[in-house]
Nucleic acid binder design. Sequence first.
DNA 1: AAGTGGTCTAGACCACAAT
DNA 2: TTGTGGTCTAGACCACTTG
Lengths: 238, 238
Amino acid sequence: MVSPDTAEAPYARVKRFLKDGLERGEWPPGALMPSEAELVARFGVSRMTVNRALRELQGEGLVERSQGVGTFAAQRHRLASTLTIRDLHEELAARGQQHEAEVLLKAEEAAPPALAERLGLAPGAPVFHTVIVHRADGLPLQLEDRYVNPAAAPGYLDVDFATTTPTHYLLQVAPLWEAEYSVEASAASAEEARRLAIAEGDPCLVVVRRTRRLDGPITIARLVHPGARYHLEGGFRP
Amino acid sequence: MVSPDTAEAPYARVKRFLKDGLERGEWPPGALMPSEAELVARFGVSRMTVNRALRELQGEGLVERSQGVGTFAAQRHRLASTLTIRDLHEELAARGQQHEAEVLLKAEEAAPPALAERLGLAPGAPVFHTVIVHRADGLPLQLEDRYVNPAAAPGYLDVDFATTTPTHYLLQVAPLWEAEYSVEASAASAEEARRLAIAEGDPCLVVVRRTRRLDGPITIARLVHPGARYHLEGGFRP
DNA sequence: AAGTGGTCTAGACCACAAT
DNA sequence: TTGTGGTCTAGACCACTTG
């Protein structure tokens, strides 16, 4: 009779062995780590198996490998941390809060030159523009000022944003995309303060998000949150 | 004569095929994707090869797989975005700016209960506490208020922080770690304003970072940045 | 030439889910 | 029972780096 819970996949054993060693500082950053052949001998597994362990560690940024040379403990300096920026509606739903969206503007406009460039359009070309206040249980949480490339989402203006988040709709229309974020703190303008029910000059967390697909930019959104009511959380990918 | 550049690894071909299909919306979120056996037949490769392609797509969050059921196009809702929070010194060095650090406090203190709990210590146990102002070309960019678990970095107080960043030192002492972040906007206190050469109440971007290893918390840092002079950037992991 | 990683194969056994 | 993914093997060929 075997104990099934004790069973750990061989590749996982190899991986854990290496990870533990790294964590204990056995191989300081830059140090040469055991070769695949050594690990094959030590663990009595096939090369594919240790290869998988090493490849995964590489994907996690814990080791660096180069053909013909060897595997090395990674330099753990440039820390890339993952901050989760979720769709507000989902975030609120997860917390069991009521989400309301008030549409302040929903129009087609002529893109000013600076915006046109960022959206990959000709100056003066039509863009979709929406401004929406999102509230959680009645309290304003986000002022969303968004421009959308009509080519990427022709039906954007027909969406009922009281029931569908722009993010949600755009995800459906343009499933796989890339995004760039910028996060900063700034003081609320008079307009923003009014929309968010805070005082002018109050600190706000501002997220600017630009998304693209291969064929060009999709949308640029400026999300303004009252500093006192909103924060981002995240973790480090080990 | 063969063209060597045309050579694409079979697993990469399979992966690209699937990725392209996802991008074109061929398999909308939740849709059943081709099974390993189908891909084996279609591409004439071994199962290990298509398995690798699928496993990597899974790692990238593009598909979801479950044993006995199948592979499905991922729900692209919960977007995990990577915001890079780099060591300030490196960030400035990359921009060619001069980094100076002024140590305002460097002491061992008794941990108040709330802090002790977050650092996994007994209330009143000794903690290391440093407060440092970081400047770029003479302009204050960050006020770093940090508590360190003495067990994780016994030599912390002996470090010359004019030449070595706390982050840098801690990375050496505790190579592999995990971190949690919280980012928010808040108004500068009188003390913070003075240290950062801004006005009281000015918006600040505040990053709270807590790091741990398996054996316990290492450090908690509160990093306050003038909103007008600092912002975070990041991208979306496709 | 020797050692390294990069990749592929053609089978295999298993756990799991749906039927 | 059938089909799915999860994993492993024991070889193999190749490209690359170093001596």
